[in-house]
Amino acid sequence: MDWPAILLSIRLAAIVSATLLVVSLPLAYWLAFSRWRGKFLVEAVVALPLVLPPTVLGFYVLVAIGSRSPIGAWWTALTGHPLAFTFEALVLASILYSLPFAVQPITAAFSLIDRDLMAASSVLGASRLTTFRRIVLPLARNGILSAAVLSFAHTIGEFGVVLMVGGNLPGVTRTVSISIYDSVQSFNMTAAHQTALLLLGFSFAMLAIVYALLQKPWLVPHK
């Protein structure tokens, strides 16, 4: 079993889903409550990774972080080494790739919140931020939980984007799915079986936990 790859994937997924929560909360709030007419454009951009082939996304990220791009040049100046084919590049690409898996459940959960509850909170003197913290967040917790788990699991399972942006450097950018691909390429079917089975079990367990939490009445805050 390729433990370094497994640990690398878990580290990547943890960083990505944590970052995505921070990014997605304000974005989802805006998507759920803004009345701007052009909102659909932003919604389409957020959903793009769902339909785009991972190689296309990976290709553009690679171009964007290459040493000839402003981002790549800025990174090189800052850190002394190029961004492409590093763990940081993987994080960046994975955030983009898993964005809809975090934003959409949270947006849906925000949209379901009764606007009168937010109005009642304002009339009782609460600022928008207080209303968000005390009313919106607790009532959307199932959506936020789904977002965290789905973006984590989706990042664990990604392949095309990782290959394009990170390459296959053991301990740096070789994730668990790349490791399985490698094992198969080198006819090491035992190793492939082991890792694949682990990933299958993991994915199933994650989804089972999410669905169980979503249906438990003690977690559902209201009828």
Binding site: L117, S122, V123, R134, P221, K223
Partner: peptide
């Protein structure tokens, strides 16, 4: 609305479902 000092009881009441009656009443 925060500064109008107006009490409002909504048609569907809009009680916060995740808070106890005490926490609802204390909210303001």
């Amino acid at each position: 609305p925060q500064q109008r000092r107006v009490g409002f009881v909504f048609q569907q009441l809009a009680l916060f479902p995740h808070l106890t009656a005490r926490a609802n009443i204390e909210y303001g």
